[in-house]
Amino acid sequence: MEMFSSLLVSAILMGCTYTLVAIGYCLFFGVLDVVVFCCGDIAIFGGFSIIGAYTILYSAGVLQAVPAFVAVLIMLTIAAILCAALGLIAYQFSIKPFEKSSTLMPLLSTIALGVVIKEVLGLVFQPVVNSIAAVVTSVDDPLSVVGGRNPQAMPNLIAGSGSTDERNLIIIAVTLAILIALFLFLNKTKIGLSMQAISQNKELALMTGVNVKRTITATFIIGGILLAVGGFLLSSYQTIIRFDGGAMYGSKGFSAAVVGGLKNTWGAVIGGMLLGFVEVFTAGYIPGGTQYQNIIAFLVVILFIVFRPEGIIGEKSIEKV
């Protein structure tokens, strides 16, 4: 029973982190009709920017001066801004040029951009952060950041020295808070409503005077914030972040989005949870099952695509000529 409960917690936490990136996919897909495949890498970039911000601010002595809660908020803000900027760059360079071409093009270009993000993180992260930290601080020996290609230890920012239970609770609480905020944003604000309108019928939205350009920008900002928080929670949960983790995290998030129904933001929650549960319980209850957890997770996805491509709570779409 003890094992079941601990697995349950793991599954929920995995599900939470998958959910956030899956929602990112859904938002982008809804507004642009394009799968932004580098979402995982953007999230990992978010995690790295938090480590970078931590290193720099810590050596500048800012973090010690403010309460822990405020410090986390500062770093999250920095990461969210950077992720949103990266999202906009992704839109400019790998989505916008292909608006009129086939679906293959933006797919490939976002995958390629993901590779570029990943490699740049691996190559330049450590030198850049260390040199900035060295400039900021008067101390000669800045906090050593492990080489970008090695896994980065995530400082335990949430719950400080508290127990892991406390941290897990905070992760779940933050995910819930974000979901609620997103719900309010999508349904109560003008931009949120116009995002929904574009998602449902782009031509009609254009006709009724929705500012598509502004909405797209807003989407990437919101998506960037979501992904930054996702990367932060993921790396806090795993206590470690790897520069090459984005591809796997991204494809899991995309899988969750597909299982839930690509156009349905709330389906992503169910999809993410389902994927988390399948993975954790496969690893937990099947002897030697760890090595098969990814295979089984992807098998579930393939079955969904073949037998219920519209997702768990999606609607069947009939293509019109």
Binding site: M3, S6, L7, S10, L13, M14, P151, Y237, Q238, I240, I241, R242, D244, G245, M248, E279, V280, F281, A283, G284, P287, G288, G289, T290, Q291, Q293, N294
Partner: peptide, 17 residues
């Protein structure tokens, strides 16, 4: 006996075991 993939970051399920 549990085997993980190279690049694994989450060992929570194994630790529960």
């Amino acid at each position: 006996i549990e085997n993980v993939q190279e690049g694994a970051v989450d060992f929570r399920a194994i630790i529960s075991k």
